[in-house]
Write a protein that binds this DNA or RNA. Structure first.
Lengths: 226, 226
DNA sequence: GTCTATATGTAGATAGAC
DNA sequence: GTCTATCTACATATAGAC
């Protein structure tokens, strides 16, 4: 594993419109297949077939399989971070004090809204994030793409619990993210096949209720009464 | 995917002691590698090398790659279920009323204790369970190996919240399991590298605190005051 | 049960024509 | 940028000697 985040080369001229479409088709196809089958379960050939291009073109635009995977993950990470941080800023600048529920909504909301509203492409990305988060192989990638934003949210929550250690807050936040990923990867899909699928807002509410209570409990440990 | 749970063939004679050791070595090696690299990231050759046997022997004892994977997961599932259910029974038969914390301890405890006490082999299994739980490819396997026990625990928790719907309890339970897996797969490993690694009992306590608060919140939704 | 040898397919990556 | 053709390595699986 040489380069986790491939840097864009300085180009002589701007790429043609067709080339950009090809590149996007390859990234979209890779996103769907990586999400469905994982990194090792997906071949470059499959991606080319899914995108309707030649295998060698996938190499050309992706720069190798690992670089392509990192590119796919990083592509939407910025958009997601911006949405999350601006939602957090909006919550902090409103009238009235910040609340734990509001902070969690700023973190979960953009993820779940994009996954629902923007069609199967963002839904695949949600599954991809879950894969990346669970696998130590992609530790560098998550540190670059997601940890900085997570740090801001942990700080914001810590501001609500001035007597709690930042570690205790971080613990609760990690558990909360795992719950969010569980919702995006398994429960959502299962429920969508059921008789009366819930609205995304309902899922978001129940997730926030669970995590807010858990974080509050983690941040306010009981005094050891001797 | 033909057979998820391979059934043991009726044998003419009992296998020799050496054969049993070989088989165990193969299953142990497969467990470690599947846990570290996933299903597609692990080759039969790697497993043979790790176990110190020939590639064809892995086939002979495992019955193909998918069957071997299912065998590895199922091998410890019974042991884990028995430990969990007997801990639950012990909690229910004690003096005094059952508590949510006690029920969660009966579920989390056996998993985390085995993962810590029984050495790297059970720790690898913990990671394997996380992989299996997250991947739709192994849905049948989880339904057979883990869902029945989970059902008993959801019932036990539902008994504590007679006014809550079983669905709301199940939601909280799913999020709790995801938090447990997050602890076993990422936070544990990270903390072990730190300066002052916590005791397993401390992790268990903080996990129970988080999940008990979350489940309670999920099970007692706020009345909509108009 | 255990080994060697091999069959058969597919993986990632690249060279070079256009 | 795009395509065809191909290289090299490794995958799963099996046949058959011992």
């Amino acid at each position: 594993m040489k380069l986790q985040i491939p840097q864009e080369k300085q180009r002589q001229r701007a790429p043609s419109k067709r080339a950009l479409e090809t590149k996007r088709a390859i990234l979209d196809a890779a996103e769907r297949l990586f999400a469905a089958r994982g990194f090792d379960g997906t071949s470059i050939r499959d991606i080319g077939k899914e995108a309707g291009v030649q295998t060698s073109l996938v190499h050309h635009h992706g720069g190798g399989k690992e670089a392509l995977f990192a590119r796919v993950v990083a592509r939407r990470a910025d958009e997601l971070s911006i949405a999350r941080l601006s939602a957090l800023a909006a919550h902090n600048h409103q009238r009235g004090p910040a609340t734990l529920e509001g902070i969690l909504a700023a973190f979960f909301g953009p993820y779940l809204e994009k996954a629902e509203a923007a069609g199967p492409q963002w839904h695949a990305y949600a599954r991809l994030v879950a894969i990346v988060s669970a696998d130590p192989q992609w530790k560098n990638l998550t540190e670059r793409c997601f940890d900085p934003t997570a740090g801001h949210f942990i700080d914001a929550i810590a501001g609500l619990f001035p007597h709690a250690s930042r570690d205790d807050i971080a613990v609760g936040f990690v558990y909360s993210v795992s719950a969010m990923l569980a919702l995006a990867t398994s429960r959502w899909r299962v429920s969508a096949l059921g008789n009366n699928p819930k609205d995304m807002a309902d899922y978001l509410d129940e997730l926030i209720r669970f995590c807010a209570a858990g974080i509050t409990a983690a941040a306010t440990p009981p005094k050891n009464a001797p």
